[in-house]
């Protein structure tokens, strides 16, 4: 009895969980109790059910997560397709715009659709007097140097002197 087991129950004693009881001082030590088998089965069943539930929840969660990833991937594929289509459309529209702006088409439309014709002559007006001097200075800045021709001033600076370009 000193080791907490009862004679004749060695196997059970080995299997059962022994809970040492605190023996109150001065009182007689109560007899040890073995948890009834029914209680143990209930606990096992509860743990099993809980495990199954958790497992199902986890599996369901994984499936849901996988579905979300699949949906995200599908959306990504769709967006990539849209990007490709938009880029293709942009390139084609850009080509169309370039074709519409081409000089050959503009001349064709001007002459055939709008009835425009090239001018029979073009008149150029050259400045004279003080304006001529001003333009000369604006054009060259200094007496023209053959050794180092300059690119000259911008058109806006000369515009007042030589009229309006076409």
């Amino acid at each position: 009895m000193s080791d907490g087991t009862r004679a004749g129950w060695p196997e059970r004693a080995a299997l059962a969980t022994v809970i040492p009881l605190r023996v109150p001082e001065g009182d007689e030590r109560p007899a040890l109790k073995v948890v009834p088998a029914r209680v143990r089965r209930r606990r096992t069943a509860a743990v099993t059910v809980l495990a199954i539930v958790v497992m199902f929840v986890v599996m369901f969660g994984l499936a849901a997560f996988q579905t979300m990833i699949a949906q995200g991937q599908a959306q990504l594929d769709h967006l990539n397709g849209q990007v490709d289509a938009a880029q293709e459309s942009y390139a084609k529209l850009r080509l169309e715009a370039a074709r519409l702006e081409s000089p050959a088409r503009i001349v064709s439309v001007a002459e055939q659709r709008l009835g425009l014709v090239p001018p029979p002559s073009v008149h150029y007006l050259a400045p004279s007097g003080d304006d001529a001097v001003a333009v000369r200075q604006a054009t060259t800045g200094a007496p023209a140097s053959r050794a180092a021709p300059t690119s000259g001033p911008s058109w806006p600076s000369l515009k007042p002197y030589v009229g309006t370009p076409r």
Binding site: P118, P119, P120, S121, V122, H123, Y124, L125, A126, P127, S128, G129, D131, A132, V133, V135, R136, T139, G152, W155, L158, Y161, V162, P165, R166
Partner: peptide, 21 residues
């Protein structure tokens, strides 16, 4: 004309027609 290069002023005012366009 395309590059908007003005005439180099050298003399009196002129208004001279040129053929073509």
């Amino acid at each position: 004309r395309e590059l908007q290069i003005p005439p180099y002023p050298t003399g009196p005012a002129a208004s001279t027609p040129t053929p073509g366009g």
